[in-house]
Amino acid sequence: MAEIDQRPAWLRGVLDLCLLALLKDGEAYGYELARRLEDLGFGQVAGGSLYPALLRREKLGHLRAEWRAGEGGPGRKYYVLTETGRDALEREVVAWNAFAASVAAALGGVPA
């Protein structure tokens, strides 16, 4: 039986949070964030999930967008974590850690 890559489905719930975390130490643009997630082992992140997640957080005021002129191109949209975003990140990390602990506890008895 072919192995189904479950990472995209798992990532769906935490993509927003990971993006906030990646922007903690500085701004980045969409594709750059996709590459960094890939490097972290999440697999390929489709643009179709990446940009809506960024947009959602921008609308919530957690991220601020800045357009920079690109080389020859029409410009690139950089995302910056706002103060509100930083607060949200802190709160959500606590919540996520509790959830991850529950998952770990549930899976605890299963031999890896």
Binding site: G30, Y31, A34, A46, G47, G48, Y51, L55
Partner: peptide, 21 residues
Amino acid sequence: GIVVEASGHLDETAAAPLEAF
């Protein structure tokens, strides 16, 4: 802005739009 961003993404990934989005 949204369309420019999507177009930039396609340029960089060299992916087909249907596949990326």
